[in-house]
Design a protein around this nucleic acid. Structure first.
Length: 244
DNA sequence: TCCAATGTTTCGCC
DNA sequence: GGGCGAAACATTGG
């Protein structure tokens, strides 16, 4: 159940197989297994919530969606494997996920400057994209994968609480400094998420997401399904300013 | 026990 | 055919 940072952890865990040949393929995925057998994995990569297994001229794109999971060098008892890749030194197994092939080079398919976890992340580029979207709410903007690839609902809620912006604020009504803060904090928080997740302590750091009371003012959070995307937002109407 | 949820795609209607 | 919203998919913890 992954946002971008969780996919970075998957990439790290898979790294032990980089450069190795796929010696067996199984699973109920509809993709053509024969394109993988005996092929070498060049690199593991990620873009937002997409996990990428890069071969020569072919990339396997794995999206874990809401409920997907994986195991490395073990299996989930009694669960159907969507795709299993075996290497000389172990195996990686994926469950309940979307798997498609991307032909050619990953760079043909992805704008790396949009990925908040990428070295190539470009805040200025995000700002330009937001400028072209008048009427877009902050809550929807942060979930827009073309702009903030990797940001999911948890990161959305935590970023908006941190910067004290109401989720239903319109991005083109945010003061310039606030807009910049929203963009920069999306990356900063995502990297904190990564470290907390790595240490299995993510939840205890949540300040807004699923919370009942605002720690700053002690007033209750309003839970509301906001924006075009109608995703859960936790709002402190006292601390978070609505810009409209 | 039941329900909601770290997400995206597809279908059907206007 | 575009735009929209609902439905589909599917697992697990609270």
């Amino acid at each position: 159940m992954p946002e971008g940072p969780s996919i970075v952890l998957l990439k790290e865990a898979a790294q032990q197989f980089a450069g190795q040949k796929i010696i067996a393929v199984s699973g109920d995925s509809k993709i053509d297994h024969s394109l993988l057998l005996n092929k070498k994995v060049l690199t593991f990569n990620s873009w937002g919530k997409h996990f990428l297994i890069c071969l020569k001229d072919l990339t396997i794109r794995i999206h874990l969606l809401m409920f997907g999971s994986y195991r490395i060098n073990e299996q989930k008892p009694g669960k159907t494997i969507r795709l299993s890749l075996r290497f000389k030194t172990g195996e990686i197994n994926f469950y309940t996920c979307s798997i498609v092939y991307l032909p050619g080079d990953p760079g043909d398919h992805y704008d790396w400057s949009a990925d908040v976890m990428s070295d190539e992340w470009d805040a200025g580029s995000a700002r330009k994209k937001l400028k072209k979207r008048p009427g877009l709410m902050a809550c929807d903007a942060l979930l827009e994968q073309d702009i903030f690839a990797g940001v999911g609902n948890i990161i959305k809620n935590e970023v908006l609480y941190r910067i004290r912006v109401h989720p239903e604020s319109l991005v083109n009504k945010l003061p310039a400094a606030k807009l910049k803060e929203m963009i920069s904090e999306s990356r900063i928080y995502s990297f904190q998420f990564l470290e907390w997740k790595r240490n299995n302590e993510l939840k205890k750091h949540w300040l807004a997401h699923t919370k009942k009371l605002c720690l700053r003012c002690k007033l209750p959070f309003i839970k509301k399904y906001t924006g075009v995307k109608k995703r859960r937002s936790f709002i402190c109407e006292n601390c978070q300013v609505l810009y409209t």
